[in-house]
Every structure is written in structure tokens, then in C-alpha cells.
Simulated assay, not measured.
Amino acid sequence: MDFDKRRAYWRANTTLIRNLLIVWAVVSLGCSILLVQPLNALHIGSLPLGFWMAQQGAILTFVVLIFIYAISMDKLDRRNGMK
């Protein structure tokens, strides 16, 4: 693989990582800390949404992002002949 293809592959990889980290930061910091009071006005069952996001939502989001990363990198690897 030549230099330009490797550079494009690495740029796509780092862009994916950056975007997923932004989503993770918005969910974990935004929903769990900064917006907890407004979110507590909403309820999931008997739990306030802000509390639920801090306890479960951020963790579930992180697990989903791991799967998104794995699937996206598999596609990127196949597209660039890495596998």
C-alpha cells in the first residue's frame, strides 16, 4: 500500500475515533453532569432521566460506540485491502 492510501486510511481512522469520542463526551458529560437537572424532569419508569443517564445511559452508549467502531473499522479495513 502506498503512502497516500496509508495516509487516507489513517485519516479515516482518526476521524472515526474523533467523532465517536465527541459523541461519548456529549453523552457522558452533557447528559450525566451538565444537563442532569433538566433531564430529571423526564422519567424512565420511576427513575429520573438524568440519574438514569449517569448510571446506565453513558455506559450503554459507550458499549454501543465500541460496536460501531468495530463494524466501521472492519468496513474501512476491507475497503483499503487491510484484511
Rank of each mutant, 00 (worst) to 15 (best):
V23P: 07
F51H: 11
N40T: 05
Q55P: 00
F67Q: 02
M1C: 11
D74N: 10
G45A: 08
G50N: 01
K5Q: 14
F62W: 04
R6W: 10
F62M: 10
L21W: 12
F51I: 15
W10S: 10
L35R: 01
S72F: 10
D74F: 10
K75I: 06
T61M: 07
L16H: 06
L42I: 08
V27F: 01
Q56A: 09
A12L: 00
L29P: 03
L65M: 04
V23K: 04
I17P: 00
V64P: 05
N13E: 12
I59L: 09
S72Q: 07
L34C: 11
S72P: 00
L16F: 08
G50R: 00
I44G: 02
W10Q: 12
V23W: 04
L35M: 14
W24K: 12
F67T: 07
R6L: 13
G81P: 09
D2A: 06
A41R: 14
F62D: 12
R6V: 11
T15C: 05
Y9Q: 01
T15Y: 15
S32G: 11
V36Q: 08
V27E: 10
Q55M: 10
V64R: 03
W24N: 12
K83Q: 09
A25C: 06
V64G: 02
T14H: 11
G50A: 08
D4C: 00
I17F: 13
A54H: 05
S72I: 01
V23G: 02
L65H: 02
W24L: 15
T14Y: 15
V27L: 03
L29T: 08
S46G: 06
G81W: 00
P38S: 05
N13H: 10
T15W: 12
Y69D: 12
W10C: 05
L34M: 12
I44M: 09
I33H: 01
L16D: 03
V63C: 13
W10P: 00
A8L: 02
A58V: 09
N80D: 11
R7C: 05
A54V: 05
D77A: 09
Y69E: 15
R6H: 13
M73E: 10
S32R: 04
V64I: 15
T61R: 04
V26K: 07
L16P: 00
M1W: 03
D77I: 03
I71N: 04
R7A: 11
R6Q: 14
L20C: 02
D77T: 04
V23N: 02
Q37H: 15
M1Y: 02
L34I: 15
R18S: 15
I22R: 10
L60G: 08
G81Y: 00
N40Y: 14
V26I: 09
M53C: 10
S72H: 07
I17E: 13
D77C: 11
G57C: 02
L34E: 05
A8S: 05
A12D: 07
I68L: 13
S32Y: 00
R11M: 11
A58L: 14
A58R: 12
W52F: 14
S32Q: 09
I66L: 14
N80C: 07
L39Y: 08
R6G: 12
F3V: 14
V63R: 00
I66D: 00
P48W: 10
